[in-house]
């Protein structure tokens, strides 16, 4: 029987790569988008995945969206919390509203979507959740402080939820990419990017497809004994 997966933030570079990879594995895939309608429609057309518009910081919209996804896919076996956003601001320029927005876009969305989706996993006593963090949540990098804070929050969310949901056989893991060649990685200044590459054992940036491969592994049965992990996909730093 094919698996049904919900991926948040499918219109971005990494979300798109995850959707494509899961479709290639034969999963039924739904994904959400907020602003990138054109990219979302193109991805849906190219992969046969289902696109749903929603502002994931709004609980009512999340509830409606999850209801629609269930209506389309019948059930949700696995969830990828990938939605998020970043702002390239030095600490001195981060305003209160920027802090609130970035933390909401990266963390509140993860909470609201997980709360809606996990009900059915708990009821069914099974499921898999993968959250997208960042190496910047673990190590010192030249990235905006509010964004790094949110990405560090992904780790705590993952560990505690894995502990709490272990008794329902729901595995919760996170993937922490290093510097990628697309998506948020394109906002990193050349100088900082060169610094990353110089310290990376792999000697290059990663690709979104390489991260998507790890997400697919963690969602799948091959990872049945992998839980409460935060897997760095960074080429070796």
């Amino acid at each position: 029987m094919s698996r049904s997966v919900l991926v948040t933030g499918g219109s971005g570079a990494l979300g798109g790569a995850i959707v494509r990879r899961l479709r290639r594995d034969g999963d039924d895939v739904a994904f959400t988008f907020r602003t990138g309608r054109e990219a979302a429609e193109a991805l849906a057309a190219a992969t046969g995945a289902h696109a749903f518009a929603a502002d994931l910081t709004d609980a009512a919209q999340v509830r409606r969206m999850v209801g629609e996804v269930r209506g389309r896919l019948g059930r949700i076996d696995a969830l990828v919390n990938n939605a998020g956003s970043a702002q390239a601001l030095p600490f001195a320029l981060i305003e209160e509203r920027d802090w609130d927005e970035v933390l909401a876009a990266n963390l509140k969305t993860m909470f609201l979507v997980t709360r809606e989706v996990a009900r059915e996993m708990v009821a069914r006593k099974g499921g898999a959740i993968v959250n997208i963090g960042s190496l910047a949540g673990h190590r010192a990098f030249e990235v905006p402080v509010h964004w790094a804070t949110a990405k560090a929050g992904v780790t705590g969310f993952t560990l505690a939820l894995a502990q709490e949901f272990g008794r329902f056989h729901i595995r919760v893991n996170a993937v922490a990419p290093g510097l990628l060649d697309d998506g948020v990685g394109r906002m990193v200044p050349e100088r900082a990017a060169a610094d990353f590459v110089a310290h990376c054992a792999g000697g290059r940036r990663g690709t979104t497809a390489e991260v998507a491969d790890v997400v697919a592994f963690l969602l799948g049965d091959d990872a049945r004994y992998v839980n409460a992990q935060c897997l760095c996909v960074d080429g070796g730093i």
Binding site: L89, A92, L93
Partner: peptide, 29 residues
């Protein structure tokens, strides 16, 4: 400007200008 607001009477507006410039240079998404 951030460290010496007393020396830049308009420091909050000034910082906001830089913030807006960076947000234009690096729009979200």
């Amino acid at each position: 400007v951030y460290a010496h607001p007393e020396a830049y009477p308009d420091s909050e507006r000034l910082l906001r200008k830089f913030r807006d410039l960076l947000c234009t240079l690096f729009p979200q998404g």
